[in-house]
Computed example of a mutant assay.
Amino acid sequence: MIYVGAILLVVVAGLIRREPAVDVSHQVSGLHTVGVLLLLKAFANGCASLTGVEAIANAVPSFRKPRVRRAQRAEVALGALLAVMLLGIAALIEKFAVAPADGVTVLAQVTRASLGDGPLFYVVQFATVVLLALAANTAFGGLPVLAELLARDNNLPHFFALRADRQAGMVRHWVGERPAGWRWRAGLNGFGALLTFVAAIVVTGSKFGEGGWLIVVALPLMVAGMEWVHRSYARIGARLELGRTPSPPRPRRSLVVVPVHAVTRLTRDALSAALSLGDRVVAVNVTHPEDERQARAFVEDWDRWDPGVELVQLFAAHRRLDEPLLTYLAEVPEPHVFVLIAEVEPEHAWQRMLQNQRGAVLARALRRRTDAVVCRMRFRVS
């Protein structure tokens, strides 16, 4: 609002003033004949103002209800402000005979001619700098909304959607839905899409040597990446039979495997949870052949405790915890297997470095190489 007020002040003051407050004729230099290329470049630079219009279109879901009506009013207000400021500045350029000059913007010349070199001149310049900084942030502000829309259509990973079609998309909408008066709406949106296409061609051509080639290269790669993401989601959806009603669920005989290495309260709580999960519970202890005395002592402790749960001892020649368990799970008859991994949740975050991370390693291997349901049970020390 400060920028809009400043520009309107410049326009009003300039239209009222009969003579420029400061002579700007000495700043006129290097005038050239206006040709087609110059007009196209000016058109390309002017298209930057359209980013505000597109930002409002992308942000329709962010408006309060009624969203569409509020967004339409915002678009009309923005268009009116742009028209008033553009026509006003153009009139002042004609009135004060302002022309391009090296090192001084046309807006600065118009402001100096209207308001002089006083404090108001610097207020307008500062407001312009702030506006340009905010305009550069438009892409960052609009990207989350655009990413949400793309993610809904399975063109980006779905975590981008944790947050109104436009132009050519609106044409498809009107043609597909065909409500009352859809023809003129489709024609209007189609005309807008055509203008956008022409603007894109002009901007690309005029800016190609100034870095526009990067967009020409990057955009097809981005589209190809989105197509790959879309196909991936389509395959997952087909595998999950999305859109189809599945058959009723049926209970399946299940096995709960609990890795254990000592008779402790943690082992007791893990077995108690396992007994409520499945039909059969098996405690699995993995040990090394050289640790025979330790393995025998563990079995004696287990028999003395007698928890009423079957104990299976597996021997790992290379001291690997995951390989023996994976081999065992491949041979069990139950079609549905749970693996319950009991872990200690430390009282303080820094104490995590004291843990051996065996549970994380085992869980990662099980999820990657088996269809077992991995449950990690936390035992809180505090």
Rank of each mutant, 00 (worst) to 15 (best):
A316F: 02
L134F: 15
G88C: 05
D301W: 01
E345Y: 15
R364W: 05
E177N: 11
G142P: 03
P307I: 03
W182K: 00
V106G: 06
T138R: 01
V299S: 11
G212A: 09
V123C: 05
K95I: 04
A317K: 11
R320N: 10
G209D: 12
V24W: 00
N45H: 14
P333A: 07
A363T: 02
N154S: 09
P251W: 15
H336I: 01
A59G: 06
R112D: 03
E310M: 08
G103D: 11
P307Q: 08
Y3F: 14
R163Y: 04
L366G: 05
V361P: 00
Y3M: 05
V286I: 14
Q125F: 11
L195T: 12
P66Q: 10
G209Y: 01
D306R: 12
R69Q: 09
V256Q: 01
V223Y: 09
V284S: 09
H158V: 13
G5S: 12
Y3L: 07
A90E: 06
S62I: 02
V10D: 06
A97E: 14
E334Y: 05
A164G: 08
E210M: 03
H261Y: 15
A317W: 01
G237L: 07
R73S: 06
A6E: 05
R73F: 10
L242K: 07
F140L: 10
A101P: 00
S114R: 04
G103L: 04
G35N: 15
A238T: 03
D322V: 02
N285P: 00
D303F: 11
A218G: 02
K41V: 02
H173M: 10
V202F: 07
N58P: 00
V258G: 00
F63V: 03
W213I: 14
L120R: 05
E345A: 14
H26S: 15
E148S: 13
S29P: 00
G88Q: 06
R67W: 05
V282L: 09
S114E: 07
W305D: 09
H173D: 08
E19D: 06
